[in-house]
Structures are given as C-alpha cells and as structure tokens.
Design a protein around this nucleic acid. Structure first.
Lengths: 218, 218
DNA sequence: TAATATATTTAGACGAATCTAATAATTATT
DNA sequence: AATAATTATTAGATTCGTCTAAATATATTA
C-alpha cells in the first residue's frame, strides 16, 4: 500500500514521539509536522481508517503494528539516504537532514535495496542512529549519555542526539566523533558538568547540556 | 523560485514536446502529463501567471526563457539521477525512468552539484541523451538515425530514442550499445530495413522501426 | 463558404491537506 | 467537587490539482 507524503510524515513523527515521550498528544504532533492541532485531528481520522493508528477521540493514540512497519520503512530510507549523502557526497551531518526528508518519500523498494548494498549495508547512520534492515529490524545498542554513564570505564561514543551545526562545531573542537574512546573522570554536582579524558588529549570538561547529547556504548 | 511537482512536470513535458513536435497542443500535453485537456488549460493559466510560458487562449504556446531554464534544470536532475542509478546502483536503463521521475523533483541545488561531481560530471545519460550543465548548457552532438545516416561510413552509436525494455532486449541481441561502431552497407527501399556491419560480427539487418531509434555521430 | 469535425476553454464539483474560529472534552487547581 | 485552564474536535472556508459535461473557437472538407 502506498501513502501520501503527508501521511508518511505524520506516521514517522508519531513513531519518534512515541520513542521519546511515549505519550503522543495532538499538540506535540502538530508541532512535529509543522501544522495546527485541527489538521492533526483530520489526519488522525484518516490514519485510523487505514489502520495505521489506534485512535479514539480525545484520547492519546498509538501506532498499530502496521503503522510501526510503515514508520520503520520511512526511517530506514531516511537514514540510508543520510548515510549516502555523508559518505558518498561529502555532506556534513548538519546539512543532510532536510534533503533526506525529501528523499525518504521516493517509493521504489528496489532503489532502497540497491542503495543499501551500494553502501555496504550500514547498520548506523552518520549520527550513530540505527538503520532498520529491510524487515524493520533494528540493531539495538545499549547506550547511556555522559550524564548517566559510569565513571572510570572505557566508553565508546555511539550516537549524538542533537544534530545541529552548533553541536557539530563543538564536537569537532573536542575531537569527539562516533567511535571516539573516552573515560569519565568526575561528574560535578554543582552544574552537572563532566570531566572526560580522551586518549592523548588533555583532560576536558563538557557541560551538562552537551553531556546529555553524547551517547556511549557501555 | 520553487515550483510544485505538477508544475515541473508540465514544464518538462512542454519542453520535450517543443523539441520533437515543435507545435505543442493542449491535447498532446494532456497525454504527456497523463491528464485531461481541461486540466491542461487550468495549468497553462497558472504557468502563464508565473511567466513560464507564452500563452493566449485557443492558440499554441511556448516556453519563455525562464520556462526553458526551469525545464533544463529538471532534465539535468533527471538525467544525472539516471546516470547514478545505472552506473552506481547497477540498474538497467529500462528500469530507471520511473525512479528518476521522482528523484528529479528533489529540490536541493547543493545535492545536484555534489551528485554531478560524484559522477565525474557526465555529459550524457545512459541512453546517450545530453545532460545539461549547471547553467543549462547542453553538449549538442550532430547525429542521425540509421534511416538517415550515410552509407559506407564509420558510425558511432550515440543515443537510443526508444528506451523500453523491448528495445533494450533487441539491442543486446545485436550487440549494440552507446559507443558501438558500425557501417551501413545497404538500405532497402521495399521496407526501409538497413543492413549493418559491426566489427567482428556477421552482417545483420535491422528493421526500419529499429533503425529510426538508433542515432549515431556522423 | 457552409457544414462538420476537432480542439480548447469554461463552469461547476471533488478530494487532499490545510487553516481559523468556535465548541466540547479532559485535566489541573483551588 | 466546582471552576479554571488546557487540549482536542468540529464547522466551515481555502488552495491545489484534478475531473465531467457543456459551450465555444478553430480547422477541415465537401
């Protein structure tokens, strides 16, 4: 079954909101897809008719299994394209999101299969987010951000939540990227800042705000 | 300025029709964009408002310079993507058209610039059609089809008009592709068929219908 | 040139996705 | 629990691209 670009965007946003906020409200969703709550209501009815969500008026809603599959398919495409844009075309990670938002709606399955192979079937996108395989299976990695990870243990950076160019700039300055190894020396209660040590680099301190965006394998 | 997918498709089709039929009628255009003549009229008004075509009711219409630029931009994207699909993802030429029709509407200029470089700035797509450069310049090659090319001279296949899988199959069987060298021995008036000779291959005869679709540098 | 055939445009409607303003339900607060 | 504040839904309108059927203009040909 094929879905409109608008429908796909709603589905994708519901998926993401479910992951982080686990209660999805019409208002949050409206913000995510950049419309008004009234438009969300209209669309929710349509998505329910197509059995993509479970929905009763005035109550919060969830993706059905079918809806989940659709969401994972879109996310797969999005992340594969991001990988392509960064690894083959040399984009910076903060430049690829908008383009991938368009590319993710290209419908050919064959295209995505071939793209996947061309890229050597990557499991993670340039920000460390997992790329669902053709069946929607995600390689889950247990990870904790620097505000929650244990002290004095070797950590490997596995993903970055905030993908803005400001964050990218900061990470560059600290020489931090996906795969970087580090230890946490100390966490300061006063402001939540964290002292880290990266091989061969001097000890450094990152703010709590930054620490919460850097996720590591544990 | 940005245009809708529908607008882009109309512009592109007008461009192509102008090239081959040089008079563009609403009926032809309707067939090309797969709608009805009434819808064409509606769109023509819109395109005129946006100064993309010269149009007076009940008369045939032409692209303005601006319209031409837009058309060439879309065609550039279409052909670059086709090149990508064939050269990097291993598609056959008869498989790429529909996918490129979707990809050609992705809006990022930066994307196309980088794609162009990634592909080493190709001048011709997999069917031998010229790819406009970023300024809309096309590398024009004087070419003639096998029904019009001179006898006994070395010819190099430069493009194929019909891009169906049936044609692809036939070409494979004859060992003909872009770049193939051949001579025409004889043309038969009775049915327009053409006897050709390709290096090291036995003499072969192609139908008039086929001959008209094979273009060569002269 | 008059009659006929063909092509184009208008009029009016529809579905998709959106909006604003008004209303109704839910949740939070006193 | 009653009221206030928040959140969600409906009603009605709008834009885009499309449609059918009817009307009008152009082209053909007898």
């Amino acid at each position: 079954m094929k879905f409109s670009e608008a429908e796909e965007n709603y589905i994708k946003s519901i998926y993401h909101l479910q992951l982080s906020n686990n209660k999805v409200s019409a208002t949050l969703l409206a913000a995510a897809v950049n419309t008004k709550a009234a438009s969300v209501t209209d669309m929710l009815k349509k998505l329910q008719l197509k059995k993509l969500i479970n929905y009763k008026p005035y109550q919060s809603f969830t993706l059905t299994d079918k809806g989940n599959k659709v969401a994972l398919d879109i996310i797969r495409k999005h992340r594969l394209w991001e990988f392509f844009l960064v690894s083959k075309l040399g984009f910076k990670w903060d430049e690829v999101h908008a383009i991938a938002e368009e590319l993710e709606h290209i419908s050919s399955e064959e295209l995505i299969l071939r793209l996947d192979n061309f890229l050597d079937n990557p499991s993670f996108d340039p920000h460390g987010d997992p790329i669902p395989d053709r069946n929607g299976k995600i390689k889950f990695i247990p990870q904790k951000n620097l505000s929650a990870a244990p002290l004095k243990k070797e950590l490997i950076v596995s993903s970055i939540k905030d993908q803005s160019s400001e964050m990218l700039e900061l990470l560059k300055h600290y020489h931090i990227g996906i795969g970087t190894k580090m230890k946490i020396n100390k966490r300061f209660d006063f402001d939540g800042s964290v002292e880290i040590k990266i091989d061969k680099l001097p000890v450094a301190i990152v703010s709590e705000q930054m620490a919460k965006n850097i996720f590591c394998k544990i």
